[in-house]
Structures are given as C-alpha cells and as structure tokens.
Design a protein around this nucleic acid. Sequence first.
RNA 1: GCCCGAGUGGCGGAACGGCCAGACGCGCCGGCUUUAGGAGCCGGUGAGGGUCACUCCUCGUGUGGGUUCGAAUCCCACCUCGGGCACCA
Length: 810
Amino acid sequence: MTSETKLERYAPAAIEARWQARWAETGAHETPDTSDRPNFYFVTMYPYPSGELHVGHWYAMAPSDCAARFLRMRGHNVLFPMGFDAFGLPAENAAIKRGLHPAVWTEQNMAHMRDQFRMMGASIDWRREVVTCYPEYYRWNQWIFLKLLERGLAYRAKAPVNWCPKDQTVLANEQVINGRCERCDTPVVKRDLEQWFFRITKYADELLRFDGIDWPERVRVMQTNWIGRSEGVEIEFAVDGHRDARIRFFTTRPDTIHGATFMVLAPEHPLVQTITIPAQRSAVEAYVARTRDLAEIERAAADREKTGVDTGAFALNAFTGERIPIWIADYVLATYGTGAIMAVPGHDERDFAFAERYGLEIREVISPDGVEHAHLAAAYLGPGTMVRSGSFSGMPSEDGKRAVAEAAERQGIGGPAVTYRIRDWLISRQRYWGTPIPVVYCDRDGVVPVPEDQLPVVLPRDTEFTTEGGNPLARVDAFVKTTCPRCDGPARRETDTLDTFVDSSWYVYRYPDPKIDTAFMNVDVARRWLPVARYTGGIEHAILHLLYARFVCKALRDMGYLWFDEPFRHLRNQGTIVFGGRKMSKSKGNVQPPDEYVARYGADTLRLFLMFMGPWTEGSDWDSAGIEGTWRFLNRVWMVALGDADLTGPRDVELDRTLHRTIKKVTEDLEAYHFNTAIAALMELTTALLHASGPSRKDGTDAVVLMLAPFAPHIAEELWERRGRTGSVHAQRWPEHDPEAARDREVTLVVQVDGRLRDRLSVPAGLPEAAAREAALRSAKVAHAIGDRPVARVIVVPDRLVSVVTERGS
RNA sequence: GCCCGAGUGGCGGAACGGCCAGACGCGCCGGCUUUAGGAGCCGGUGAGGGUCACUCCUCGUGUGGGUUCGAAUCCCACCUCGGGCACCA
C-alpha cells in the first residue's frame, strides 16, 4: 500500500488534545432535556474519588462511554452523567496520615479525576455532576432519612451488630465478607449497640421479584440468595416450671417434630437468664461471655467443633409430651428465625453432631424405607415415612409437614411462618466523613428529628483527625451541643454519620437537575429521564449498592415521590480486571496508571485495547502486551482513510457484501456490549479496504470511520474532518445495513461422508436440496470416500452441507 | 458443603437454537523496505505424517462415557479453576 505523496503520520497526542478542547468549547456533551430524539438515560456507576482513574476505572467506563455514544448515533438523546461518591473512609484515613482535611483531599482528587475523564474522551455532561459530600447533596440524604423515619422505615434499636476494630465503626451485614470488613479485611466482632437501621426487610418479598427488568441472571441469583426467603412454621414449646415462658422456634421440617429430643437457644437469647437453673448459672454465663468475644469468622466456621452448655431447664415437646433439655450453643444464631431451635439430631447434621458430642438422644422419626431402625450412623436428611411419630406414623414425610403444621395451629401453639436471611440495613457509622444523621437527643423529648426546614445539618469543618480512634465528630463541641427543636432545652446531636451506600442509593435521581434546592429531585426534568434505561458497573455491588438502591426506590415510590418500581431497567456488569492475581484497586496497591499508555499510544488506542481484550462481562487479566495490535489497527484506519486510492470505477460487490455484513455484526454486537468481536469485525473490514479501490472503498471507509466513532472518538472525529465531511462524526447517523447487499450469491457446501469432511463445493446460494445432493455425489473426492459401499441415506442442509451415510458407516 | 460460571493453539480470545474448529489480535518464523536501530508492508504459523510444490491423510476444544448421519456446542459422571453463599434451623 504505497502512496506516492507522503502521508502524515497518525499523532494521537495532538489530535486528542485538539478535539477535547473543541468538545468542551462547543458543549458537545451537554445533553438537552428535550430534543427531536427520544431521551435515553445511560448511567455507569460513579467512582469513589480515590485519587486517579486507573486502568480498572477505564475498563468500566470507556466501554460504557462507547455504548452511550453508539446509542446517540442510533438516534437517541443520551444523557450520560458522572459524579463522585465523595464521602467515605479513605478520605479520613488520608487526613490522619497526611494531615490533609478530607474535604481538601477529596476536592483535589476530584479535580484530577475530572481531567482524566476528559483525557479518556468520555462524553459526560459535566453540568449535571453530582458530588455527595457537598451540603446541597447530603441535605437531601438527610431529608430521605427523615422521610423514612416518618414512615417507620428508619428506626433506632439495640442489636448485636458487626464492629470493625480497625475502622472503628459498625458495618452492615452486606459489608461483611467472610467475616471480614469489606474495606480493610479485618475480622469483625459482634457488639451490642444502639444503632440506626433502615427496614429493608419490609420489602424482602418485593425485592425477590425482578419483573420487567433486564438484569443478569447472576445478580438476580445473588440477591435472591442473600434475601434467603424460607418457608416453614413457627411453633412454641412451654418451659417446664415457668408458667409464662415459651420458646418460639422456626423450622422448615415440622414433620420431624417427634424427633426433637432437645432445644438449643442462641447464647444471646433473652430467655437464657430466666430459665437457667442456679447450678448451671456460672457455666452458662461463662459461655455467653466467651461467645460475645468470639470473632465472627471463628464462630461461623462450619467445620469447627460444636460447643454448648446445658441450662438445666426443660421444655415440653407439645407433640411427644416429653421433657426435653434446653441447651445454649453458638451454632444457633440470635439473628436468624427466633434465635432458638428444636433440635432433631436424627434428621439434621448440626444437631446430630451436637447430640453425639454431648450424649443427647438421637431418634429416627423419618425412615427412608418405612422400617424403624434402632441406630442412626448419620442424620438422614431426605424424605421418607414418618415413624415413632404417634398418630402421624406411617404418613409420608412430605404430607407430614402440612399435617404437623395444622395440628400445631389447632393446638394454638404455632402456624405457618416465613423467615428471611436478610437483616435490616444498619446505616450508622461512627466516622466523621459522611452525612450527619439529622436527629438530636434531648433529655426531655428523647430522640427528636431535625425539622426539614433546618436542613442541612452541616458537617463541621474543624476537627482533629488522630489515630486515637473514636468519631472525630463527637469531639466537636460546637456541633454536638445544640438545643432541642421541640422544647428548646439543651440537647446533643447524633454524631454518627450515614453509611455512604445511602448516598449512592438515590444519586441517579439527582443527575437530571443536581442544583435544585427545593427537592431531592426535579420531578419535571427527571420525568423526562427516569428510570435509568441502562446501568453498568461492577459485579461487586450485586448485593450492596444494587440491593439498597432497589429498596430506596420502592420506599420513595410508596411515599409518592417516584412513579416506577425499579431504578435500573437494564443492567450489565463488567467483569473484574485483575492485575498481579487480584482485583485492581487502590486499596490493594496494584493499580496500573493509564498515563503511560495514553502518552505513548493515545486514549483511543487504550480504550480500544480495553474493549478488545476479551468479553467485557467476563473481565480479564491486565496484560499490556497486546496494545500494539490496536495501535496498528488505528494506523491502518488512518492509512485507509487518508491514503491515496482510485475511487472511480465499478462497485466491488464482494467488498460491499463485507461492508454490510460488518455493519450488521458491529450493530448487533454493540447492542449486546460484545465490544471485542465488534472490533474484530472492524479490523477485518479495514484490512479488506486496504486492498480495494473504487466507490466501494470510499463508502466502506466512511462507514468504518462512523462505526469507529464510539470506540475511538478522537481519531474518528479527525478523520471525518480530514475527509472533508461537515459536522461532528458523533452527530451522524449510524450506518444502516442493507440485507440485499449482504446476501451471499455463492456459498460453500460442505460434504461429509460418514461424518468426515471430504469436500467443499462452491454452489449458488439457495440451491435446491436435490441439486445439492446431486452435486455432492458427483464429486470425485466424495465418490472416492464412498468407495464401493452402498449409500444408505443423504442428509442435506440447504446452503450448508450434504452428509452422506454409507451402509457400513452407519 | 451448597449454588452459579468457565476449561478451545505458545498467549488473549472467536465460533456454542449441532454442521468448514481456531475469526480478530499478541507472540514467533520467513521475505521486502531501511546505512542501521525502530517502524511499516507481504506471507506463514493447532499437532503429527506423507512423492512436505499442489492436492492429501490421521489426530485434535479438561477427562471418561452417551445421544446423533454429524458434538467445542446436547445428556451423564468426574477433574480443575473462578465467583457467590456458608452452622440460615
């Protein structure tokens, strides 16, 4: 491909800077609220302002930008906003370490990251930026809290909660991963503390439904498992010698109730104190104390030997009439069900192990073969026939579930019940850099919400950040000491701040008009955009942000503030980008800065490379080795678009066919976020163009520049201009594929004999079956492969293959 | 332990409503160009075998079975890796 006039080289640095400046000047990415095109709200999860956009951020955001640009060219008025999840612990830790105020540190980071977004060429409408640490934003965070409080969806309660000793704060269950703090990996411990919660459990059933939203199966499964709905019955047994004491328990296996030979309470169960007999008191108290100090990971280790202590008390099994011992053990969790179980060692592995260790009775009440066995070597978990079960004996255990439940109901000691694994969302944090929870504590009036017209409760700027621990906010007297809004008497402000997941649970409602100061959302503008048509982000938020956002949406809907049931209509998660064996993350110290690659190859090449590495939803190992490939590709496009070629003459039907197939492929791939295969198709087309001439080359090249625009926005703009076209390439319509031009005239017919490929025939498309069969049998190679064996049958798949089966071969 | 997802050249990955395995790219090999380095361009590249020029043959998608004229693709079992949940009664 030599060209006589020397072609100027592709120099990305100058080109990218020039177009970024031009886009800023012309407001190219400022999306109007109304236009002649349908509105389309495309959001990618906003980042935490950790300091810089690393390759992991680019991996999340460049493809999202590509998808947004594609939808624009497809005729939508796309709003693609960005903001910062600006509250949170790292800012506070940086303050402690470097003596920089969290606000200053955060502001610096955001400034730098905005520049980096521009460098990436992201088509963000910055007029709509949302920053959660500004009072204009967190004021509405406080307002939402008050609304939830009004509606009984926020409450304060003392409960055993997760405490991270390193971060010196409590955590929500969702933020404890394998017994460790999600942020710092420190094992968490349980503490009994009075904290603020959001009543997410009230929406458990609705959160299990995903009607009308297009979300990945994986996320739906994760949320479903996390919510953990379990149907069974709740029954209560009386405690022998205690008139009023009843132990309620939940079970999914009422059919095994005649095998309940003892009961177990969680050590934290409120009845423990009441029922423990004097002789057992010291042993029980010691065990309770030991449990309290145990780290959650140790307690939760399923392989750990079961321990427990006898309370000395007895319950009365209402079905057998027996007195059964009541134990406490830490394998029963205070936070699930009622914190108490009927133990059926014959048919539950955990109860079996416990009974064996402490010599408690193991009784078979479900028999797989209907015969009573004297001894059980292990718990039998399957279905069978009820035995040793009084009047229920002989009944299939599946029927027994309902029969026992009904019997319990008749006796007035129980009934059907549903239990969930999900707990209410703990939203208090004992940290400074967050939204102050807008309540005060008054000696006379108790807990008093701050009136709406006194919002925001501003986070005081001046405080001391030390490593001493304790919430710095609690040390700011001017903040803490206040007057009660009700009685004007002296009062104390709440010094806990809101979990930052509260901030992110509603930020997408704020983007359409982030400046409105009379409401959390500008309804008139938001109606044109919401709900989010497409949302993208990391899979790590499957049961954190994505679950919380659904809950807050439903709660706001029920209060009349939203008109839809789900915040995100369509969701796709990019996979994780792994470097050095772990997820790329600043807190793990393995980030790859993009700067070096941008300086050397340009942002367009890096964007393209990240999208080309592999399927976006699968994630990838970061290995920059292949970046040369996308760089070369852009150079080839440059050459095709600007190099000399004879553009006169007849059309090239074959090239036109390649072109229209490529348009179809790239269009379909981009709809589905299959960036890697779309780029491969563009590479193929570009190579074909390099060797072509005539009007087909010209049209094909225009199409390549257009289709490249979402992937590599700068070079596409430059080539569009240099090729003498007017307007921005990004304002053009996406090319349409012509099915007629894409259609094959000739196809390759594969001929198999006894399953082996023996010949390929080039035949006209649409060849009738009989003719295809005949053509195949005429082939010398096929005849040779058949030999002297008789042909048993011939299968023809039109335009694809002919399969010949011989008698011996079949 | 339970529930998902995935195993394809030296590497990243294509093809998965059954039908030409390895698109595209990296790397590597050869050639052209260049004073040289670099860059670029052209060709080759799953393994093995063959009158290796053309045509050709055998094997080949984690392992072992199965269904089918035909399996990377469907079914069963197993192994390995990744992710989620994990004493949830």
